[in-house]
Design a binder for these strands. Structure first.
Length: 609
RNA sequence: CGGGGCGUGGCGCAGUCCGGUAGCGCACCGGUAUGGGGUACCGGUGGUCGGAGGUUCGAAUCCUCUCGCCCCGACCA
């Protein structure tokens, strides 16, 4: 029966959750919303996914949709607070923008048409077209054109931390790739490219500080601009064997790039005189490897044909040297196709080619794209467009013409760095942040202009800069865990200290000592997760290791016999004992030492690139 | 979207091929002992087997349709 009215203060201030005399409620494990799991759900594969589920940080609601339980939400908020501090430090102003947008704004920018089904479109009750925000360039640009009119107002930097929705074709990897997610997006507004350059660099530095403060090891690489358009983009890639992206790193630090855009040095093979074409019989030889073997030539002396159907309907016929792979991102760019899908057998035959024996010689109604490698390599073996036959000594220019000759080859581990020639190291990585040089891509399309000193109007130079906070949290777990569980960097841990009351349940002396420690720690500004449950010590130790607070403090009849508490860092192998009266000071010192390693300043341990 | 796999108490799984009316471990509740690395034992609560339809005397098991989830690929600020 609900009360008719509240009893007078202070009685109502006390609840069943308050212990005698308490004026605030500690976070007791017995009342933590969300319980830890001994076994991870069977469909979780990544360490971060398993541990965040087992530790009661997140729960799935649907494919790529998660609830954040109290522990997980605390971590995310701490990451976001770090982001806020660093954004504010470079002049950012936080604001808030809607997640539902009128489609007309997206039509103005052109993205309503250009972006695929990952943009969710729907109609409201009045049958107006709407979209769910996957990012907010249109809204910022719309705000800018009404709020900004003079060069005197620039430069400007606004940012927001909000939910976005992208209907990914395939969510995967737990929190690494989700459909509903929170990200920080900032948008810079400048009068010219020089100003944009300053803000681009400021973000670069701020991002380095943010990720260092979160304890992430990362590298910055050049990247594709994708659906954002624009001129330049860098990605902040956290190294992880479970990363979706592959990045190529020069061991001398001269170059680092996402495989999607990575260039590599092409050493021109020795010149040869073009020899006459010569057809050879090659039965059952539909792969380049088989061809090289049967004719006993290196892969680099063969030309491979790869067939795509472009979004425009064009048949794209790619010729590349046999030892290289096609990079579809580069190919999309040079062909100006938004999408490329592998061509079907019927489509291939329709242009006069034969799957497995394809050659650009003699095909029709095809857009022929040749990689630089086939221009520079004479006398290659190509297909004969006829089952069971290939042709030796095929030469671009003499035997066929290409519509474009360009770099469309995928860089790979061991390829030479374009700057210094040293062999690349390929690493898997997770993209935790990116910065985009948009230029006037949106402002020109949407009419966001300012007037200069002469009264002339110019489009605003824009940049956009994103960090996925949930992905960053999962990535930290990928980099900071062991067989027992998570080991949070102190800067983003859900609580600073796991306080364990061990020994016989209800032992008055232990409970009193632990209660007192809890109150003293909290009074010192330390966040405590207090394990007061009626559980065996092993259960508490295992849960503390799983949840991963950076410091563990235990009291039990055994430690109290010496007037001590046991202190252990999550990552340490051995515990130490401290007198009860010095426990708070010892915990504070340990936390300070951990914080000192995560100041955001460059560290000698950071890798050169 | 193509290929593969899986949906049985909160979690992990068995049972499905060879229909007979649901089982094990963990968790949870009560109890006894224990009390520093997921302790032991006793006694319990909880599911009608993703959903719909069909075959059958009888369906978790067979058939049809459907929904959802995971993995690989395609795709992806």
């Amino acid at each position: 029966m609900p009360p008719a009215r509240l009893p007078p203060y202070p009685e109502w201030h006390q609840s069943a959750r308050h212990a005698e005399g308490e004026d605030r409620i500690p976070m007791r494990m017995a009342h933590l919303f969300g319980r830890t799991l001994r076994d991870a759900p069977g469909d979780a594969e990544l360490p971060s996914h398993q541990l965040l589920l087992r530790g009661a940080f997140v729960r799935p609601l649907g494919s790529g949709i998660f609830s954040l339980l109290p522990l997980g939400w605390r971590v995310v908020r701490k990451v976001e607070q770090i982001i806020r501090e660093e954004m504010d430090a470079i002049g950012g102003q936080e604001l808030y923008m809607p997640v539902v947008h009128p489609a007309d704004l997206w039509r103005e920018s052109g993205r309503y048409r250009d972006v695929g089904p990952e943009l969710t479109r729907f109609q409201d009750r009045a049958e107006r077209d709407m979209v769910l925000a996957m990012t907010h360039e249109e809204i910022v640009t719309d705000l800018a054109r009404s709020e900004i009119s003079s060069y005197r107002q620039l430069p400007m930097l606004v940012y927001h931390i909000q939910t976005k929705w992208r209907d990914e074709p395939r969510a995967r990897g737990g929190l690494i790739r989700v459909r509903e997610f929170t990200m920080k997006d900032s948008y810079s507004l400048d009068r010219d490219e020089a100003g944009l350059g300053v803000q681009y660099e400021a973000h670069w530095r701020a991002y380095e500080r943010i990720f260092r403060r979160c304890g992430l090891k990362f590298v910055v690489v050049g990247a594709d601009t994708g659906m954002m358009g624009g001129k330049s983009s860098h990605e902040f890639m956290a190294l992880s064997p479970h990363g979706e992206d592959i990045i190529l790193l020069c061991p001398n630090g001269d170059y680092a790039a996402n495989r999607e855009v990575a260039e590599f040095r092409r050493d021109a093979p020795p010149a040869e005189d073009a020899l006459p074409m010569e057809e050879v019989e090659t039965p059952n030889t539909t792969t380049i490897e088989a061809l090289a073997k049967i004719l006993d030539v290196p892969l680099a002396r063969t030309a491979k044909a790869v067939f795509f159907k472009g979004g425009s309907g064009r048949f794209v016929f790619v010729v590349i040297r046999g030892d290289l792979e096609v990079n579809e991102t580069k190919l999309r760019k040079v062909t100006d196709e938004l999408t490329l899908v592998p061509a079907t057998v019927e489509e291939i035959r329709a242009v006069g080619a034969e799957p497995g024996y394809g050659s650009p010689v003699g095909v029709q109604d095809a857009y022929i794209v040749a990689d630089e490698s086939v221009r520079d390599s004479p006398n290659l073996v190509a297909g004969a467009n006829r089952v069971g036959y290939h042709v030796r000594n095929v030469n671009l220019g003499r035997d066929y013409q290409a519509d474009i000759v360009a770099d469309i080859a995928a860089a790979a581990d061991g390829h030479p760095c374009p700057k210094c020639g040293a062999p690349f190291v390929a690493e898997r990585a997770i993209e935790v942040g990116n910065i985009f040089w948009l230029g006037t891509r949106f402002s020109a399309a949407m009419g966001a202009t300012y007037q200069d000193e002469q009264g002339e109007s110019h489009p605003i130079q824009m940049g956009s800069y994103g960090i996925g906070s949930g992905r960053a949290v999962a990535t930290v777990v990928e980099q900071h865990h062991d067989a027992k569980g998570i080991a949070w960097p102190v800067t983003i841990a859900p609580f600073h200290v796991s306080l364990l009351a061990l020994g016989k349940t209800g032992d008055a002396e232990t409970v009193a000592a632990a209660d007192a420690l809890c109150a003293d720690l909290e009074a010192a500004g330390i966040e405590v997760l207090y394990d007061d449950r009626e559980e065996r010590p092993g259960v508490k130790f295992n849960d503390a290791d799983l949840i991963g607070c950076p410091v563990r403090l235990s009291v039990s009849p055994r430690t109290l016999a010496n007037g001590q508490a046991e202190l252990k860092a999550r990552t340490a192998t051995e515990a130490t004992f401290v007198p009860l009266g010095e426990a708070v000071a010892a915990v504070t010192a340990m936390l300070d030492a951990l914080r000192a390693e995560l100041s955001g300043e460059p560290d000698a341990a950071d890798r050169a690139w």
